[in-house]
Amino acid sequence: MSTKTPENAQPEDSDEAWRRVFLESESTLRVFMRRRLAQEADVEDCLQTVFIKSVQQGDKVPLVARRAWLFRVAANECARHWRDRSTTTRVLEKQATYESCNHHDDHLQRLVAAETAEQLQQSIQNLPDHWQAILQLRINENLTFQQIADQLQIPLGTALTQMRRALERLREDLQTQEDDASEMEQGKRQ
């Protein structure tokens, strides 16, 4: 067995030098990071990142400055963690607000559609019976106007005219109901 003397000693490998400095500083780095980070898993993640960055430095940082450099990188990693977390939180909150608004908008649209369908059904019931029959055959049974005229034993022109008048009446009724609702809403605001 030969022993190495300072004369024949090889220069220490840079990775090994960083590893040694890191291991000597690890416990105080942990304490330092625990004061800045809320969870132990975050401390471990940042500590690992500090180690990786130290090895990547190679010989760029002088040996005497490496311990201070580790703490500077640790402080930067803790700050980066909080920035990333803050950004993630803002994105998630924005997404939750967006989804909440969309859910609210979808719900509102369904309510409006249901209310409109109910108003339309009431308006149809207020139409003369022969107009209701034409609407039902055209919309519910998807018959052509010629088939409707044949089934009701009326001229084709009469079927077309009555359908047009029924639709005009429905449009007017719905517009009147919409105008009434708008007036009520404006009255509430004043």
Rank of each mutant, 00 (worst) to 15 (best):
R35T: 06
A117C: 03
S182F: 11
R67A: 12
H107G: 13
R90L: 12
K4P: 03
F22C: 06
L152M: 10
I139P: 03
T28I: 10
D173A: 13
T5D: 14
K60I: 05
R80S: 12
T3A: 14
A166Q: 08
E16K: 12
R110K: 12
Q177N: 12
P155Q: 04
F145P: 01
L170E: 01
L137C: 05
R72W: 10
N76Q: 13
H130I: 00
Q147C: 02
R169G: 01
V91M: 11
L143I: 03
Q162F: 06
A74M: 03
A114V: 06
R67S: 11
Q162I: 00
C46T: 08
S25N: 03
R110S: 04
V50G: 01
V112Q: 09
R110Q: 11
E26F: 07
F145C: 01
R30A: 10
P62T: 08
M1Q: 12
D180T: 05
L152C: 00
N140F: 06
R34M: 12
Q48G: 11
D59P: 02
A68Q: 11
N126L: 11
V55H: 06
Q175E: 13
L37S: 01
R83L: 08
W82T: 07
D59T: 09
I148M: 04
V61T: 13
M33Y: 05
K188L: 15
D84S: 12
S14Q: 09
P155D: 04
L108W: 10
R164Q: 15
M163D: 15
A68D: 11
G187V: 01
V112Y: 05
H130C: 01
C78N: 03
R34I: 03
A133G: 02
Q151D: 02
P11W: 07
G58L: 01
S100M: 10
E24S: 11
L156Q: 08
Y98M: 12
Q190G: 14
T87R: 15
D180N: 09
T144H: 07
A9K: 09
